[in-house]
């Protein structure tokens, strides 16, 4: 009797703690940003959003994040495939290194790219000779985004490939399907939900990246200034409403993506 009462109290306590934590750390700050962005009225919000440097920063961020996501979808799918389907020395090591971008401070990642691609480095000089510069231009931003979001697609694709029944592939062969037809009609559809949700998360993360990008982007307003750096700049120059306006756009983007990923996952589980 007393133990059931106790466990009920415990349960209530746990739930309240989690709720409080959630509200304090996530809901309030988010509501705060939405509130702040509108604190000077709709007019000010619209002004801040339509400010050319602001929307250019947002547009640039979305464009580059999209490119980074596409690269990661291609390379990540391939890497996930190779790590699951092939056996070669060093596979385990490679597999554990996939998570490195998650573990590394993003500023360190930025610094690595800076040193690797800078004008003094062989790669930088080689690019220079070909007639373009990587560092402080858009390619550097894309590289930074790709690096930081590298694990998402791989980690989303791997479990799907692992749980896939090899007999499904063999069945396709016995019915006369070529390797290519089997890949595109049987294996790829099996991986598709993972690729999609991995891509969404990667995109969302690429939109938000600051640490790695700020070091390599050059941050030239209107050219290589991305949204998160723009927000930082606005705060530095004391324009809180401007910062929150751009934040709200990014936040809304992230929410939509998160909702979509959830939708994809529940549909997959429903099967």
């Amino acid at each position: 009797m007393s133990s059931t009462l106790q466990s009920r109290w415990w349960g209530w306590g746990f739930r309240s703690a989690v709720m409080l934590y959630f509200v304090l750390l996530i809901v309030f700050p988010i509501l705060g940003i939405y509130g702040q962005s509108l604190s000077a009225g709709w007019g000010a919000f619209a002004d801040n959003v339509t400010e050319p440097l602001a929307w250019k920063a947002v547009a640039l961020t979305v464009k580059l994040a999209l490119i980074a996501t596409i690269i990661n979808v291609l390379i990540g799918t391939m890497a996930g495939w190779v790590l699951i389907r092939y056996r070669f020395p060093g596979r385990k090591l490679l597999n554990s290194m996939v998570d490195l971008p998650f573990a590394l401070p993003t500023a360190v990642a930025g610094l690595m790219i800076l040193l690797l691609l800078g004008p003094q480095s062989p790669v930088g000089q080689w690019a220079e000779r070909l007639g373009f510069t990587i560092l402080f231009h858009q390619p550097a931003i894309v590289i930074a985004m790709v690096f930081v979001t590298f694990p998402f697609v791989i980690r989303a694709v791997q479990p799907l490939l692992e749980e896939m029944d090899p007999a499904e592939e063999e069945a396709a062969y016995t019915m006369g399907a070529t390797k290519a037809a089997t890949f595109f009609r049987v294996i790829l559809p099996n991986m598709a939900p993972g690729i999609a949700s991995g891509a969404m998360l990667a995109f969302s993360r690429a939109l938000a990246e600051f640490g790695a990008v700020v070091l390599v982007a050059g941050n030239i307003p209107g050219k290589t200034l991305i949204a998160s750096v723009y927000i930082f700049g606005e705060i530095e120059s004391d324009n809180v409403v401007g910062a929150t306006a751009v934040s709200v756009i990014l936040l809304t983007f992230s929410f939509l993506i998160l909702w979509f990923v959830n939708h994809l996952q529940t549909r997959r589980k429903g099967r």
């Binding site: 069945a171 396709a172 016995t174």
Partner: peptide, 20 residues
Amino acid sequence: LPPQERGIGFVFQNYALFKH
């Protein structure tokens, strides 16, 4: 001959139907 060209049908133990 690869399985594609043997003119066989194969029924797998756990069916291996295409889930999608």
